[in-house]
Design a protein around this nucleic acid. Structure first.
Length: 306
DNA sequence: TTCCAGGAGAGAG
DNA sequence: CTCTCTCATGGA
């Protein structure tokens, strides 16, 4: 099956920018599990070639996948709105086509609970072991993978079995969240209907979901582009490039939202991935890109800073 | 050995 | 409100 006219889209940057932990590149094709089936996707120009382990109805599958990959949203327009300085301009230019996924909600909740105080390779390993242990075996040709465990599967297991997958102290957070979904105390279907502030607040009622994880869920699953997950990297980036001083999360949030506007989630993702792709992100040459623009940036953000 | 990773919670001040 | 300490794990 093919998806045509995927313009201003990069499969590589979209799937390798730390928002999903489930995709593996083999040669030029990405293999992953979405919605209980294995997908194999490769990009040739503006065409995506897709294979599925399930029998797909093209009339529903193509729109589903376009939504998952955020194709169809006018991302160039959003990027134009956050393109406020030479530094951001370079990030957009280098990572052109990167989009923010709309991932399945339960998987995103569970994955980012596991992400706290952890690194991407380890998070991927934990999720892989949880899926092997509690998910359903799937095959596409000779490729084998496992569906993400259902809330029920994780709610009815023991904490020791979760620990055996490498979750560490996050095991109880994960199991409690699974139980809350099963009991209906955390109503995922209704969270999907909520505007950003309510969705975030509802998610943060769970033990193990703080502000950053809630923002990741809002951004990477629910399409709330005004969400700004502040991890150690985003804090470092804003302190180094824009605020040029030690800053609290509140100050960073205030500045970023004023400076970048409604598309701050997209701006954040380009900055986050850029500094990972380019380890020299804060060298003299890079700092010179933004130096002339900083006073403007601070000025634009000042109304929110005091 | 220590430090770090897409942090959060509990407690103290 | 902010600051500090701890939490399990493995790779650098």
């Amino acid at each position: 099956m093919q998806i045509r006219n995927a313009t201003d889209f990069s499969l590589k940057y979209t799937l390798e920018s730390g928002q999903s932990f489930r995709w593996t590149r083999i040669d030029d094709a990405y293999h992953g599990v979405v919605g209980g089936r294995i997908l194999k996707i490769c990009q040739i120009g503006t065409t995506l070639c897709v294979e599925s382990s399930a029998t797909e109805d093209e009339t529903t599958f193509v729109p589903f996948l376009r939504h998952y990959l955020d194709i169809g949203r006018d991302v160039p327009k959003i990027l134009a709105e956050v393109d406020n300085d030479a530094y951001m301009h370079r990030a957009i230019e280098k990572l052109w086509g990167m989009r923010i996924l709309n991932q399945e909600l339960w998987e995103t909740v569970a994955s980012f609970i596991l992400s706290q105080n952890n690194n991407v390779p380890r998070i991927r390993g934990i999720i892989r072991r949880l899926s092997e242990r509690f998910g359903e075996r799937l095959t596409l040709a000779r490729y084998v993978d496992y569906s993400f465990p259902t809330p029920d599967a994780l709610a009815t297991t023991t904490e020791d079995e979760l620990l055996a997958c490498g979750t560490g102290y996050r095991a109880s957070y994960l199991r409690d969240a699974a139980r809350a979904v099963v009991s209906g105390e955390l109503a995922l279907a209704s969270v999907k209907q909520m505007p950003y502030p309510e969705a975030k607040r509802e998610l943060m009622r769970r033990n193990g979901i703080g502000e950053k994880v809630a923002d990741c869920i809002c951004l990477f699953s629910l399409g709330h582009l005004e969400a700004l997950p502040i991890d150690v990297w985003i804090k470092r980036i804003f302190e180094t490039l824009y605020l040029r001083r030690r800053a609290t999360h509140h100050e960073i949030r205030d500045f970023a939202h004023t400076y970048f506007g409604e598309g701050v989630g997209y701006a954040q993702q380009y900055l986050f991935h850029y500094v990972h792709e380019y380890p020299d992100w804060a060298d003299a040459e890079h700092l010179s890109l933004i130096k002339a623009d900083v006073p403007t940036a601070i000025e634009n953000g000042k109304s929110a800073l005091n």
